[in-house]
Amino acid sequence: MGVMRSSETVQPAISVRSATANRGSLSHLLLQIRRRWQLYLLLALPIAYIITFAYIPMIGAQIAFRDYTVAGGVWGSEWVGFAHFERFFNSYQFTRLITNTISLGIYLLAVGFPIPIILALSLHQVQALWFKKLVQMVTYAPHFISTVVMVGLILQMLNPRFGILAQLTTALNLPQANAMSRPELYQSIYVWTDIWQHMGFSAIIYLAALTNIDPALHEAAVVDGASRFQRIRHIDIPGIMPIATMLLILNFGNFINIGFEKVLLLQNPVNTSVSEILDTYVYKIGLASPTLDFSYATAIGLFKGVIAFLMVVVANYAVKKMGQESLW
C-alpha cells in the first residue's frame, strides 16, 4: 500500500494506471476474502478462543492500575496509577523474590543447558545400537511423569527414615539429615531433579542435529587420523552449535518463566525464604490467601510479564545479530 501511494505522487505519468490497479487490487482483495470464506469459518473458533483467553486477560491486566473491587470489576474499579507497583517495590518481599527467581533461573540454565548436550554427544558415539536405544528409552521416560508424582517421588527418596538418602547416610555412618528441611539445599534439589527428569528428552533435539551431520566429514577425519575426541571437538560440536546457540539464547530470554508448579509443590514452611519466586507469590496473593488481592497480584504478574517480554525480544535480537534463524 505504502509503495503504491508513493509511486502515485512521485510519478504522475503512471498515476492513473496505478490508481486503477489500486482500486483493482482492493476489489481483488475483497473477492479473495469472499472466495476464502470457508477458511475464515474454520478460523472463527480458534480466534474466539485466543481472544477470550489471551487478549481479554491482557486488557484485564489494567486492574494492576486500579483497586479491584467485586462491585467495580475490571472496568469500573477506581484508578490508582502505579500505587500497587510502588507498594511491591518497597515491600520487604521484593528483593527476596527477585533474588530467588533469578538465582534459580540461572542455576537451572547453567546446569540444564550443557548436560543434555554432553549426553547427546556421548550417546552419538555409542556403536552398540541396543545400548544406545536402552539409554534413550530409560532417560526419556521420566519426562512423562507428572509434576505432582515427581515431587512425591522426590519427597519419598529424601525421606529421612527410609529414603535413598537416609539409606546412603546410614551405610556411610553419616549423620541423618532431612534434606527438605534445609533451605540451602532447596535450589539444588529443584535443579538436579529437573536434570534427572528432563535431560534425556532435551537431548533429542541435539541427537537429531548430530545425525544430520554429513558422515563424509567423519570419514575424512578418520582417514586423516583424527581421534574420536578430536572428531567430537571439531565436527560434532560445531555441527550442533547453531541449534545450541539458538536454544541457549531463547532459554535465556525465557528463564524467568521457571516451571512454577514444581516450585510450588516443593515448598514447605521451612524453605519459603528461598523457594518463593515471583510466580508462586502472585498465586498466593491473588488466589490462595484469605484476602484475595487481585490488583496487587496482577501488578506483580504484569511486572514479571513485561520483564519476560523484554528479555525474549532482546534474546531474539541477539539471535538475529548472530545470523541465526530467529523467532520472527
Partner: peptide, 12 residues
C-alpha cells in the same frame, strides 16, 4: 511473548 498474567486469566 506476552500474557496478561494469572489473575486476569482467572477472572475471564
Amino acid at each position: 511473548l506476552f500474557s496478561g498474567g494469572l489473575i486476569p486469566f482467572y477472572l475471564v
